[in-house]
Design a protein around this nucleic acid. Structure first.
Length: 258
DNA sequence: ATGGCAGAACATTTCTGA
């Protein structure tokens, strides 16, 4: 069972890259963020032709998340309880791996810059609501896979120039503490669990020659319940995708379970 | 301090992103 997460920066602008990725890598489930389209303009047929079903929480122009799956999925949810602003940033479902029933949650966390503005407070509030949402599931003994674009740099080694990011909404202590809070609910950062080295990024800015200089950020994550770690065979960042024509500024993060 | 690039839409300019 291969599960992949990818912020594609528009599903329509990226459709050829996504189709190529699917053909090359054949993941069972792909979780997309920043699809930047409403459901009515979502390219359902392109994925259908490759044998995938899509489940969409869309929005015009901005945000938007979807799940693409080889098998049909049940219990689709698109709401984050308490979020009154209602941007399309979450979609979840239920899957089974080795007879374990698992909540699979796809998120696109608000960026939050500039700090100390409405956008920043929205990020803090959204993360607080997410923590509540997760805590309820965990108190209920649900097993969880939560993955997507967290817009959080967990540690110094996740950013090429940490000193430049100390007061950035992706790296502020207050924001990193929220990430710790999520981990402390009983989750493991799967990539970091298997890779302790710096310089493993999932995003490179389009500007300033960031890709050429390898000035990246690790902001896309896959967190899983502690009890699921024994099911993980491998996890990798598909870095090469960033060097394609018309790339997204993020690359896929791919996790293979038994 | 600014803008560098990219995508979408109330589109030849403005907004959002990280």
């Amino acid at each position: 069972m291969k599960i992949s997460t990818w912020n594609v920066n528009s599903v329509r602008a990226r459709i050829e890259n996504i189709k190529k990725y699917i053909k090359d890598s054949s993941p069972d489930i792909i979780l997309l963020q920043e699809i930047k389209t409403e459901e009515k303009n979502y390219p359902f047929d392109d994925f259908k032709k490759l044998g995938y079903e899509s489940y969409v929480n869309g929005q015009k122009s901005y945000n938007g998340v979807s799940i693409i799956s080889k098998k049909k999925l049940k219990n689709i949810n698109i709401s984050l309880p308490g979020d009154t602003i209602k941007q399309s940033r979450l979609i979840s479902t239920e899957i089974k791996i080795k007879n374990k029933i698992i909540d699979l949650i796809n998120i696109y966390v608000p960026n939050g810059n500039p700090v100390d503005t409405e956008k920043y407070y929205y990020k803090i509030n959204w993360l607080n609501l997410l923590i509540k949402f997760l805590k309820k599931k965990i108190d209920n003994e649900n097993q969880i896979i939560i993955t997507g674009d967290f817009n959080i740099l967990p540690e110094d080694i996740d950013v090429h120039a940490p000193e430049k990011y100390v007061n950035d909404a992706l790296f502020r202590i207050e924001i990193r503490k929220k990430y710790r809070e999520i981990i402390n609910l009983g989750l493991i950062d799967v990539f970091r669990h298997f890779n302790k080295k710096e310089g493993n990024y999932t995003f490179w800015d389009y500007t300033q020659g960031s890709w050429q200089k390898d000035n990246g950020l690790r902001i896309d994550h896959m967190l899983i319940s502690n009890s699921l770690i024994e099911l993980v065979k491998k996890i990798e960042i598909k870095k090469k995708i960033r060097s394609q024509d018309k790339p997204s500024d993020h690359v896929p993060l791919e996790c293979t379970f038994t």
